[in-house]
C-alpha cells in the first residue's frame, strides 16, 4: 500500500563525514516509502567509489543514466564526473561542465534543479561536510516552498556544510540524525 506524503523527491547531499549518516538514514527508511531518494555525495574523480557497496541495504542504489525516469521507491546516486539535474518531467539530465565548489557532482546544482522542478514537493537534506556546497541549493529548495533539513552542526563530523546552510536561511530545520529519521518516518505514517 502506498502512503501519502507531501514530498515527491528526497534529495540528500553530503561530503566529508556524511557517509555513515547516509547509511543510517537509508537503513531507517520506512519500507512502504515510495518517494525516490537522490544522493549527491562528493567523490573522487576517476576513482570508483565504494559507496555502492557500503550503502547496499535492501533497496538497490543506482547511478542514473541520462534521461532516465525516476522510479518510485528507488535510490539514486549522482555518478562521478557529472552534475546530476532533475527535469520537471521526472527524468534525470546529466551535465559535464565546470566543477562547482571544486566538485562534480556539486550538491548545489542538483538542489537548484530540484527546487526549480519540484517546488514545495521537495525535501532537501544536507549533512556533514567541509565546504559550503549545498548550502545555497538547500536555501533555494526552502525558498521555493520545499522543506530543508541540515544535520545539527554539533553532531556533524564536519560542521561547515550544515552551518553554511543555517547561515543562509532561517527556515531550515536543524536536526540530529535520529530526528531526521523520525521526521521522515512521520511523513510516511499511513493515514
Amino acid at each position: 500500500m502506498h502512503s501519502s506524503t507531501r514530498f515527491d523527491i528526497i534529495a540528500i547531499g553530503g561530503s566529508a563525514g556524511s557517509l555513515s549518516v547516509v547509511a543510517r538514514l537509508l537503513k531507517a527508511l520506512p519500507g512502504e516509502m515510495d518517494t525516490p531518494v537522490v544522493l549527491i555525495m562528493h567523490r573522487l574523480k576517476n576513482v570508483s567509489s565504494e559507496l555502492n557497496r557500503l550503502l547496499a541495504f535492501g533497496r538497490p542504489i543506482q547511478e542514473p543514466e541520462d534521461k532516465e525516469r525516476m522510479k518510485a521507491g528507488h535510490i539514486y546516486l549522482a555518478p562521478q564526473n557529472y552534475h546530476l539535474l532533475l527535469e520537471a518531467d521526472g527524468t534525470f539530465s546529466l551535465d559535464y561542465s565546470e566543477l562547482v565548489h571544486y566538485s562534480r557532482p556539486a550538491i548545489d546544482e542538483s538542489f537548484y534543479s530540484i527546487a526549480d522542478a519540484y517546488g514545495k514537493r521537495a525535501l532537501g537534506i544536507l549533512l556533514s561536510g567541509a565546504n559550503a556546497d549545498g548550502a545555497e541549493g538547500l536555501a533555494r529548495i526552502v525558498k521555493n516552498g520545499g522543506a530543508g533539513i541540515v544535520q545539527d552542526p554539533m553532531e556533524a563530523e564536519f560542521r561547515i556544510m550544515p552551518q553554511a546552510a543555517i547561515d543562509m536561511s532561517a527556515d531550515i530545520k536543524i536536526m540530529k540524525t535520529d530526528e531526521i529519521i523520525s521526521f521522515i518516518k512521520d511523513q510516511y505514517h499511513t493515514k
Binding site: 534521461k67 539535474l85 527535469e87 539530465s93 551535465d95 561542465s97 546544482e109 537548484y112 534543479s113 526549480d116
Partner: peptide, 9 residues
Amino acid sequence: YAQASLKRR
C-alpha cells in the same frame, strides 16, 4: 536542449 542544463548555462 535539456531544460535543466540550458537554464543553468
